[in-house]
Simulated scan of single mutants.
Amino acid sequence: MRAIFALLTSVVLSLGLSLSASATPVDTYEFKSMEHQKRALDLAHSLRCPQCQNQNLIDSNSPVAQDLRLEVYEMVDAGKGDQEIIEFMTSRYGDFVLYKPRWEGKTLALWLGPLGLLMFGLVIGFFFIRKQRVSQVEVQEISAEEQKELDKLLKRDS
């Protein structure tokens, strides 16, 4: 009986430990108003975690993202504007924290690159298709000698 009790206890403990190990931390910050909470969450969704690969501050569980979330929450509750918070984050971590890069000289390749690649592909495709059409239209005539040789090969000539 003791062995069964010990086995059940170890199973329950290991199950409890495995469930608690996969739990994610929850932000327990209390906002001054629901409007502040909505603004802070929208801002945190629009900012990328500087440590993670393509995760915003809300989705990331890294310590850096947790600290930045808290900082965004506190700045919103302190009455700072969205643009002021974004400026603070980009001055500290660079434009990497923005999911939508600004329209600047150094980001023109990000904004215009896909359009340029699309135009380049369309031009190449146009010339390729045009070349294919021209080569298909050309019909080559064979001479009488070539026709005789062909007939000979096909054993039509007697």
Rank of each mutant, 00 (worst) to 15 (best):
H36S: 15
L7Q: 02
K38V: 14
D27A: 11
L112Y: 14
E30T: 13
E145M: 08
S22P: 00
N56P: 04
L150Q: 12
D77T: 06
E30P: 09
F127G: 00
A6G: 01
G94N: 11
L110M: 10
Q83V: 13
E141R: 08
Q83I: 05
I124C: 06
G81L: 10
L47T: 05
E149W: 06
Q37G: 02
D95C: 01
C52G: 03
G81R: 14
A44V: 03
V139M: 03
L57K: 04
I58C: 01
S18T: 12
G105K: 03
G94L: 12
F120N: 05
T24I: 07
Q51A: 10
Q147W: 15
S33W: 10
Q51S: 08
S10E: 12
E74P: 02
F126P: 04
H36A: 11
T9S: 10
V97A: 07
Y93F: 15
H36G: 11
E87N: 14
M1N: 04
G79C: 14
E138S: 05
V97C: 05
D151I: 06
G116S: 08
V76D: 11
K106S: 06
Q136L: 15
I86D: 03
W111N: 03
P50C: 09
G116H: 06
K38H: 13
W111K: 08
Q66T: 04
A144T: 14
L15Y: 14
E104I: 04
P25R: 04
G121E: 13
M34W: 11
L15I: 14
I86F: 06
R130M: 08
E35G: 06
E35R: 02
